[in-house]
Amino acid sequence: MKCALVTGGSRGIGKAICIQLAKDSDYHILINYNSNKEAALETLKSVEAEGNTGEVIQFNVSDSESVNNALNNWQENNKEATVEVIVNNAGITKDGLFMWMPKEDWDNVINTSLNGFYNVTNNLIQKLLRNRYGRIINVASVSGVKGTAGQTNYSAAKGALVAATKALAQEVAKRKITVNAIAPGFIKSDMTSDLDEAELKNLIPINRFGEPEEVAHAVSFLASEKASYITGEVININGGIYS
C-alpha cells in the first residue's frame, strides 16, 4: 500500500490537498489532524467519495514524541505500507507587531510551521531513502518569500522552511526524492476568514483571493511522477503579489 501523508489535512488547504490527491492518484491518504477529529473525518468522507481510500491519524506536529509515537505505531500496524508522499501543510499564525510579540507566540508559530516539518519528515525520510523514491512538499507562504508586516514570526518560520526545502532537495536528489515548496498568497480558508477580502483584493493583481483547490492542483502535480525533474523549487501561488 502506497500512501500520502498530509499534515493539517482536516480543513482549508490541507483538506483540498487530500481530496485532490484522492482524485489524481492511487495513494491511500493519511489525513493528519491535531484536535478536530470531526473535520478530519469529513475530509475522509470526501476522499472516499472520490473512490479512494484513506484514514485519519492524530498527532501534534510540533510535539516530536507525539509524531514519533503516532507514525511508528501506524507503521507497526501497516508493515507493508510505504509513505511515498509527505505534504507538510500544518501551520498556525499568531499575528502581531514584533515589539509587542510574546515569546509564546514566537515559539508556537516556529514550533508548528518549522519544527513540525522536521519532526514529521525526519521520522519518515530514512524509509524514503531506502525505497529510492519520494515526494516531499512543504507548504510555505508568500510571507516566507517577501515578508509580511505583523507576521515576523510566521515569515521567519516559512522563510526557514523555504531554505530547508532547497538544502534538503540537494541531499536526497540522487535517491529520486524531490523536495519542493509552494508559497500560497491570500487563499480562502479559516486562516484568512478574519481578513477583509474586499479591501485586500486591491493589493492582488488578479483581484481576488485564491481557492484552496488552486493550491491543491500544484501540490498534486508536484506529488506525481510528472514532476520528477523539479526539485528545490518554490512555486508562488499568489495571484501576482510580489515584493
Rank of each mutant, 00 (worst) to 15 (best):
R11G: 07
G12P: 00
I13T: 01
G14C: 05
K15V: 00
K15W: 03
K15N: 14
I17R: 03
I17A: 01
I17G: 02
I17W: 04
C18L: 06
Q20M: 05
L21S: 04
L21Q: 05
A22R: 06
A22I: 00
A22E: 11
A22M: 04
D24T: 06
S25H: 15
S25L: 08
D26R: 05
D26S: 13
Y27L: 02
Y27A: 02
H28K: 09
I31R: 03
I31T: 00
N32C: 11
N32K: 02
N36G: 09
K37D: 05
K37G: 02
K37P: 02
E38F: 06
A39W: 05
A39L: 11
A39G: 02
A40T: 08
A40N: 07
L41S: 07
E42Y: 07
E42N: 10
T43E: 13
L44F: 13
K45G: 12
K45V: 00
V47T: 03
E50H: 10
E50Y: 03
G51D: 12
G51M: 13
N52H: 10
N52Q: 10
N52R: 13
T53Q: 14
T53F: 12
G54I: 01
G54D: 08
E55F: 09
E55D: 14
E55Q: 15
V56D: 03
I57A: 09
Q58Y: 03
F59R: 08
N60V: 04
V61Y: 10
S62D: 11
S62E: 13
D63Q: 14
D63N: 15
D63I: 09
E65F: 05
S66L: 05
V67E: 11
V67L: 14
V67C: 04
V67M: 08
N68W: 08
A70Q: 07
L71G: 09
L71E: 04
L71C: 02
N72L: 13
N73D: 15
W74K: 10
W74N: 10
W74L: 09
